[in-house]
Amino acid sequence: MTILIDNVSVRFGDVSVLEGLSLDLRERRIGIIGNNGSGKSTLARLLNGLVLPSAGRVVVEAFDTRTHGADVRKLVGFVFQNADAQIVMPTVAEDVAFGPKAHGLAPQDVAARTEKVLAQFNLAALKDRACFNLSGGEKQSLALAGVLALDPRWVVFDEPTTMLDRKRAKTAMNAITALPQHVIVVTHHVELLEGFERVIVLEAGKVVCDASPREAIAHYLDTYI
């Protein structure tokens, strides 16, 4: 279970977003921290092939993101900062079923996965409800449920707590740490990464620290506060 980032640069024109990045991601709990503009959001999008490297390559298991985008996205689920952005269908059950369907699963498998995930996230009672009318917390559950319905091996979270108050952020983080999947969390809320195995600090498109949470967070806080 490895995501390999091999000497990757991402640039447009003469602007460099990430420069010469090489990482071997195998831990179950990885945090990526950095300030706005550090390139962390781009790094997150490299992992499932939404963004492709300008140079170098990203390989998930045996799949290069450049040539096997669909296979990569089946393995690497992505939860966006804004839950609204990834709720694509009008009702809850239809939305959960969207991913499995898009990946071409048989109808009975789609139904089975949908049902399982809805139950797991306490959404079963809401299955015919309009997504539009869900509460903020319910929308977040739905966004995660929609991704887990794909049965990914990794789940990448792009700033999962930025739009939440402290209490909801804690709840969301508990849900994330309880996942059996490998988890990669991009955030600037460093306190959320305490129990993680590895934390990577990005600055201006480069890795400036790659260590245990204690060490990496200390480095980040020393530099910026």
């Binding site: 991402v10 024109g13 602007v15 977003v17 939404l50 963004v51």
Partner: peptide, 20 residues
């Protein structure tokens, strides 16, 4: 040199053709 606008960044980067 570093990117300022997030919007500019996402659209101008080498994104997957599926995204386009």
């Amino acid at each position: 040199m570093h990117a300022g606008s997030a919007a500019l960044k996402t659209a101008a980067m080498p994104v997957s053709s599926a995204v386009i």
